[in-house]
């Protein structure tokens, strides 16, 4: 039965779609023109991965839902993305840090998924692992520059760290569906990414002169559909056309 894998794939797909959506909000508004080119590249990688994951999830489900029906036509509680990816862009420091946190998780995750028992998952991992490796570099280099740049940038960077760090923990949590998918070796165990995540981020933080905060109260809930207030606004943008003009092809 594929129901757990279907759900676990949706978690992953939603992570990519929602983060891609956030990054795409920058297009045309970046701090310098070169970043107006760089950020859409990251957004396109995210959305591309989301499309593959939704398509495969839809095939497993076998009820004829395609990538768009899964991406656009669910209620807010049915989106399973972690809370980190839905956080608003705020400023360039938040945006780059969010990307670094996500990519630092996804890189070892996709590496492990290269050995998945599922052929389609292996295929998606093979493509994505290279994309997120670059995201670590791109976002990481910016975090270093902002952390060790001017006084203002250092303050903003550290503020972003304080704001986003409570959302890190959720990346390592296993839902029952993710656990079931891990038990059949279809998808990796999220908990196993902790060491590599910490190594990647610490390495950047050392160069950036940032301190890793202790988190007393991690923010959890995305995997069970308990989202923040910002998620509804994101969805009203994302779903606008499909909701306002139902059952049409575009």
């Amino acid at each position: 039965m594929s129901a757990p894998l279907f759900n676990a794939l949706l978690e992953l797909a939603d992570d990519h779609l929602i983060l891609g959506h956030r990054v795409s909000e920058w297009c045309g508004h970046a701090p310098l023109l070169e970043e107006d080119l760089a950020m859409p590249n990251m957004a396109l990688d995210m959305i591309g991965a989301a499309r593959s994951l939704y398509t495969y999830a839809g095939e497993l489900e076998g009820e004829g839902r395609d990538e768009d029906q899964l991406a656009y036509l669910r209620y807010d509680r049915d989106y399973k993305n972690c809370l980190l990816v839905e956080r608003p862009n705020e400023d360039f420091a938040h945006t780059m840090l969010k990307q670094l946190y996500f990519a630092a998780f996804m890189h070892p995750y996709w590496e492990a998924a290269l050995h998945s028992s599922d052929e389609t998952v292996r295929g998606i991992a093979g493509k994505s692992v290279k994309e997120v490796a670059y995201h670590i570099r791109h976002a990481g280099e910016w975090v270093v520059r902002l952390g060790d740049g001017t006084e203002e940038s250092a303050q903003r960077m550290q503020a972003a760290v304080e704001a986003l760090h409570p959302y890190v923990e959720e990346q390592f949590h296993m839902s029952s569906d993710a656990q079931a998918a891990a038990d059949t070796d279809a998808l990796p165990d999220r908990e196993a990414m902790r060491t590599q995540w910490t190594n990647t981020v610490s390495n950047v933080f050392d160069q950036a002169k940032l301190t890793m905060p202790e988190v007393e109260y991690p923010q959890l809930g995305g995997r069970t559909g308990h989202h923040g207030e910002e998620m509804g606004h994101l969805l009203s943008d994302l779903q606008y056309m499909q909701r306002a003009y139902p059952n049409m092809s575009w």
């Binding site: 070169e34 080119l37 760089a38 670059y134 570099r137 791109h138 280099e141 520059r145």
Partner: peptide
Amino acid sequence: SLHAADEVLALQAARDTYTR
């Protein structure tokens, strides 16, 4: 050509601009 503060950012910007 492109604008960048240092060689690392310049290489990344070149990748993101000229090898899409």
